[in-house]
Design a protein around this nucleic acid. Structure first.
Lengths: 149, 149
DNA sequence: CTAGTTGCAAAGCGTTTGCACTACG
DNA sequence: CGTAGTGCAAACGCTTTGCAACTAG
């Protein structure tokens, strides 16, 4: 962490990271952002990408999504929406389901938390993984279900 | 990972880990399960606890919940429910909101995933952290919102 | 017997951080 | 100029894994 509440200063690196996430529509990981950034600025370091992603997430410019043990994925903070995640390959996609404000209201009524938002992820096996699963040995008595974690 | 689809064998360690999670109502971390297990069986190792938690999660006996970068938390697989999580201290609590099967149906209609379930977490600041926040320096122009990650 | 399970310790992975240097304002 | 930001590499925290010994079936 940097200083408690630093007076922000702009840097090429930060602008680049920000631009990359804004432009991306595939929920890139930090490493993936790093690789894209490197094409424009070969000297940029992974640490800097992490620092800026974290900074931008704190500012609310980008959103960070962690699923299970997989590396965090980032996206521009456009509008609230839900995701679907493949339990096999970790693919992450947006869902065109409206944010259920009603749920927030319901929950706010039953707890004494200062409620901010909710996040909802759907889990399943993506078409591609369904196909590749069929090519492997047939499932045993109890189908093995990988936990989303 | 152990063998692809091993014929399971019982062990005192596995039964112990299982019993501990079944009995717990505080969403313990692996380390916390380990410490409880150690009281009954001082020789048990952390690695074994992890292995068994993972095994039990794969079998669906326990559920694993990861929030942000914090260590995974485990609970018995009783019924589907949602959680609320404090963005400050990481506290995790069950919510008495019914599982929204309707959402699963809606989503299943719009994607070609083989849908398994959804998970929903609400984020906010718990009463305790609201209090301790007040004791600190007053917030600056833009209130700092910690991302749930 | 023999393959699943264990304890131990080392490795792995994504992420964070200490440091000396750079550069924004 | 002072201080936030950077690149680098080492450290971190949680988790997984290789291995030899052990044990349930």
């Amino acid at each position: 962490m940097q200083t408690a509440n630093p007076a922000r200063r702009s840097s090429l690196q930060r602008m680049l990271v920000s631009r990359i996430v804004e432009a991306a529509h595939d929920h890139p990981t930090a490493h993936s952002v790093f690789e894209r950034a490197r094409r424009k600025m070969p000297s940029i370091s992974l640490g800097t990408v992490y620092r800026n992603l974290q900074l931008l997430a704190d500012q609310g410019v980008v959103l960070e999504r962690k699923v299970g043990r997989r590396p965090a994925r980032y996206e521009a903070n456009r509008h609230r929406h839900y995701h679907i995640c493949c339990v096999e390959c970790g693919a992450l996609e947006d869902l065109p389901v409206p944010y259920q404000k009603l749920l927030d209201r319901r929950v706010q009524r039953m707890v004494r938390y200062r409620l901010q938002e909710h996040r909802c992820e759907f889990y399943g096996v993506c078409p591609r993984c369904q196909t590749s699963a069929r090519q492997q040995a047939r499932p045993t008595a109890i189908a093995r279900i990988r936990s989303p974690g």
